[in-house]
Every structure is written in structure tokens, then in C-alpha cells.
């Protein structure tokens, strides 16, 4: 069992997502950094999709009430286990009574805590992940609070190991996000699209787990073009342009949308969206679909090889 001493800014239970229900409006709500999610499971001995904790901000702390191994991936953190400094992207043994503390986040934004057991939580609609807007899934449909306890089943004895450092993506701003054209790319003025791929944008404080709002040169619509579309299914990573011209990147909490879609973040760069924090600079680069697919396949190959290291 673990007990939360301090949940930091926000800590929620996530997994690889809730799929198959987009037709009734249920979004995936998956871990935003898919690779960090995979890596934390690998480090803690899981080959399936168990629940993990996705956290932001400093001051996170918990106490272990059982012996188990844990790991932290995603954002690099400055933390301790029983007052000994710990390293991200590495599995570490904790004993009954051990205290884990995260003092601050060094690089990136969201970090993932995984354990060598399976959290004893209920799957809702096939997934452990939290739908925060509608309060279901995860830990009673809400972020973790001080005093919350989570029991574990199947705690495995595993050896400590670390992730090969060249597989860990760079999370420092300025973030370079590669983009393929979206369905309504033709709705926007060509000079504005030119500016979009040339200038940099700043992550707005209005951003949240549903979408990242950017501030920068506005994207204007061509003369006489409708400024919205008939609501339709949307993909994660879609760049929507509302009436004020400020791009919004959708994450994993919406199934339909009514704004014109300028582009889609290439799949290979979508994990990076988990690490865009208010004030960060973002630069967009245009890619063809073929290039985006190729980059994704290359990345998959690298991750596949990684799975063999055990």
C-alpha cells in the first residue's frame, strides 16, 4: 500500500487510455506522455497497461506501506527516497516505511510514477484512467489528496535497472513540434500559415489537460470562409483555430469539435505535448504525411528494441 502525503499541484491515475467509446462521446483520457508511460512500466516489470500516477509540480510526497520497486519517468525531477537523492528514468527499491519526496521538477512538466505491483483500483469502461471532467475512473474519478491510500496486488520482486539515456526525449523549450496539414488548412490565409511556421508561439496559462492554448501571431481566415465547421470527430494533437485566431492543440479529452483544423501534431511529437508548460516557447515545422509516418515508424523500432533489454 502507498499513502499520499502531498499530491503536489495535481496527481491523477492514468493508463494508456479508454478506447472504443468515442461514438458515445467518451474520450481516451490517456497518459499524455505515452513513451514515459511505457518506460515506467518497463522499469517496474510490467508488459501490459497498469495504472500509474501522472503528476505535475513540486512537493509531491508519499509513504510506502509495503516493500516494492518504483520508478519515475517523464519530466526529470529532483527528489529523494528516505533522504537519499533519486534519479528519474531508473527503478528503485523502496521498503515499508520509505518516504518518497519530489522537491521540484528540473526539465519537462509531467512525471509518471509506476510501481512493481498493480494498484487495486476498479476499471471503468475498460480503463483505469481518470476522466476528470466527468469524475469517473482512476481514484474515485478525482485527483489524489493527502491521506489517500492505494492498495496493490501482485507486487513483484524485480531488479533495479535504468533506461538507456539516448531513448529519453529532450523536454527543454523551445519545443519543436512537427505538424501535418489538417482538414481545413485551406480555410486560412496563406501569409498567416507562413507566419505560423516561421514565428514562435508561447504556451498560454489558459492551457489544461483538455487543450494547450498558444499566444502569438493570430491565424486569420480567408475572406468569406466560414469560421467554424459542422461538429465532427477530432484526433488528439489537432490544432484548432477559434474565432480569435489563437491556436489550441487538443489533447485526449475531446471526441468532437466545431473549430477549423489547421493541422495535426505529428504522432512522433505528440508525447512532447505533455511537457508544454505555461510560458514555454513553441516552434512549428511543417511535415508531409509520409515524413511523419516514417519518423513514427523509426521511433517505434527504437522503442521495440528497448523492450528486449530485460
Amino acid at each position: 500500500m502507498i499513502e499520499i502525503i502531498n499530491p503536489g499541484l495535481q496527481s491523477i491515475v492514468v493508463d494508456n487510455g479508454r478506447y472504443g467509446f468515442a461514438d458515445i462521446g467518451v474520450p481516451a483520457s490517456s497518459a499524455l506522455d505515452g513513451f514515459a508511460y511505457k518506460a515506467v512500466n518497463l522499469l517496474t516489470g510490467h508488459l501490459n497497461s497498469p495504472p500509474v500516477i501522472e503528476s505535475i509540480g513540486p512537493m509531491f510526497s508519499l509513504v510506502f506501506h509495503s516493500n516494492m520497486t518504483f520508478a519515475i519517468t517523464g519530466a526529470w525531477v529532483d527528489g529523494t527516497i528516505d533522504d537519499r537523492p533519486l534519479t528519474s528514468w531508473q527503478s528503485i527499491k523502496a521498503k515499508k516505511g520509505s518516504i518518497l519526496k519530489i522537491k521540484r521538477v528540473l526539465k519537462g512538466f509531467r512525471y509518471y510514477l509506476g510501481f512493481s505491483g498493480i494498484m487495486d483500483l476498479e476499471k471503468i469502461m475498460g480503463s483505469y484512467t481518470t476522466n476528470m471532467e466527468c469524475h469517473f475512473g482512476g481514484y474515485g474519478g478525482r485527483p489524489l489528496k493527502k491521506g489517500d491510500t492505494i492498495r496493490f496486488t501482485f507486487i513483484k520482486e524485480i531488479s533495479e535497472k535504468s533506461m538507456d539515456s539516448d531513448t529519453i526525449p529532450n523536454m527543454d523549450p523551445p519545443h519543436i513540434l512537427r505538424v501535418v496539414d489538417g482538414p481545413e488548412e485551406g480555410f486560412f490565409r496563406e501569409d498567416c500559415i507562413g507566419v505560423f511556421f516561421r514565428e514562435s508561439y508561447k504556451v498560454s496559462p489558459k492551457s489544461n489537460r483538455t487543450g494547450i492554448t498558444l499566444a502569438g501571431p493570430p491565424i486569420e481566415f480567408k475572406e468569406g470562409v466560414e469560421k467554424s465547421i459542422i461538429s465532427e470527430g477530432v484526433l488528439p494533437g489537432t490544432i484548432q483555430i477559434p474565432g480569435d485566431g489563437m491556436p489550441v492543440i487538443l489533447l485526449h479529452e475531446r471526441t468532437v469539435g466545431g473549430y477549423a483544423r489547421l493541422g495535426v501534431i505529428a504522432r512522433v511529437d505528440q508525447d512532447l505535448l505533455a511537457h508544454l508548460k505555461p510560458g514555454d516557447d513553441v516552434v512549428f515545422k511543417r511535415l508531409s504525411l509520409g515524413e511523419a509516418e516514417q519518423l513514427w515508424m523509426q521511433r517505434q523500432k527504437k522503442i521495440k528494441n528497448l523492450l528486449k533489454f530485460d
Binding site: F21, S231, T255
Partner: peptide
């Protein structure tokens, strides 16, 4: 996933 909407299916 399949998302049916007014005039399209994603």
C-alpha cells in the same frame, strides 16, 4: 474508434 457525426464518420 469510430465517431459518427452530422455529415461525416471519423
Amino acid at each position: 474508434d469510430i465517431v459518427p457525426s452530422f455529415n461525416a464518420c471519423l
